[in-house]
Design a protein around this nucleic acid. Sequence first.
DNA 1: ATGCGGCCTGCCGCCGCGTGAGGGTCAAGC
DNA 2: GCTTGACCCTCACGCGGCGGCAGGCCGCAT
Lengths: 254, 254
Amino acid sequence: MSTRITEYSVGDLARLSGLTVRTLHHYHAVGLLPPAHVAANGYRVYRRAELERLQEILVYRQAGLPLAAIAEALAGGPDRAARLRRHRQTLVDRARQVSASLATLDRILEQLSGDRIVTDQDLYAPFDPARQQAYEDWLIATYGPEMAEAIAASRAHLATAPDGMAARMAELKTIEADLVAAFTAGHDPAAALARHRDWVAAMWGRDCPPQAYAGLADLYGAHADFVARYEALAPKFSHWLPQVMRDWAARQPG
Amino acid sequence: MSTRITEYSVGDLARLSGLTVRTLHHYHAVGLLPPAHVAANGYRVYRRAELERLQEILVYRQAGLPLAAIAEALAGGPDRAARLRRHRQTLVDRARQVSASLATLDRILEQLSGDRIVTDQDLYAPFDPARQQAYEDWLIATYGPEMAEAIAASRAHLATAPDGMAARMAELKTIEADLVAAFTAGHDPAAALARHRDWVAAMWGRDCPPQAYAGLADLYGAHADFVARYEALAPKFSHWLPQVMRDWAARQPG
DNA sequence: ATGCGGCCTGCCGCCGCGTGAGGGTCAAGC
DNA sequence: GCTTGACCCTCACGCGGCGGCAGGCCGCAT
């Protein structure tokens, strides 16, 4: 059984990959994907290594990277899997961008729906976070302190929009990581529990007194959703967490 | 107190909006943003209406629409807020695309991490959902039924990696946007509910049978966490959602 | 009158290909 | 050997959305 090296023409590879011949010509011309060799008749010949390289190019292309950036990424170390894992962060950042665009649109819709004066310069504030802050300061100064509440209520609404949710979930992840560390290492979880209680209050948009926090502990211990989530973090963690939450709540004033 | 009409030169507007003079020239040349008028000296003069039109252009531009598509969107009815609300769906679709790109990358990382044979044609399967399904069917047929479990386990592992959470939350947002649309427009939410159930199952790492889904509806309706989140999406949505979830679960087999 | 910052139009260039012109190569069939 | 059809090649123009610059006019201050 001999090992055959499979070779492909440019048309073969175009069909395999879903690209056009023209694109593969272009990628050769710019040095992004040279063929294995060029035959005596001038035809391009591609082999497995080129196919794998093209697969990676397609990943970066799908994410919208310019070809120069793709070439850089391909040169970013010998381990393909490591390169692709590194690239994953780019995609996550892209997801955040889309979320930010949604937030911008929501702020503009808010401008349209209110009866407040929107100055010419403030039309473009939603596209720039620093100017948005200045705009909000001006709103409060102009219309009075109850405007701060309206902005906060609006922001609470926006905080549950995609970009805000990602930040909140990221925060929850760090709190849970600290709780798991306390559980596995036998440390005092009080500080992490306080942060968790604050997180819950922010999520609710109101305070979370000790009785409510103890009630939440009951829910965590009793509901399959939460048990599944916490068991996935560490075995038996789903039993431990409600207990320390109740103990911690019992020690709080009020 | 006389009402003054504020007029801006092209340079004024470039500074206000963060664009370049060249860009505003271009937008005039292609008819996208004509000035209010051109003065006797040839200088462009912009007023409030142009400023508002440009704000809307920037929203569509930020979402990556070509200028021709932006012109179409601007011509899509006299009510600006309605146009922008319609556009929100485009952004939600963009979020879907990013999620799909993450899924493609995850599948390729999966190819790299296994010891299984990856044929030349299967290198490009992850970029095409129909071919990916055929590839997974082939893997199961070649390596046996435990391969199905390995695929599912690998996928579940990737989904709960820390940065996988952003994609999951982006996906949840699109599902919720569709549910809210169904709620406000009075459409049938069944398709969105099916996707939501699938999302929950993926989140749990196991199936979500109808009873469990109905139980989840109870949790959503009873717990302040979820009520707060859903009220922020649309008033009364937190009452409607558990109901349609329970109704939908009651209609499922099993 | 001069200088400076702003305005104007015109034009070339960039990036990543799509498209088509004109011509060579290869293999099968007659 | 010749013909035919599918494939290959290079070259070059074009597209969309501007960036950048040249050359020249405008308006205001000194």
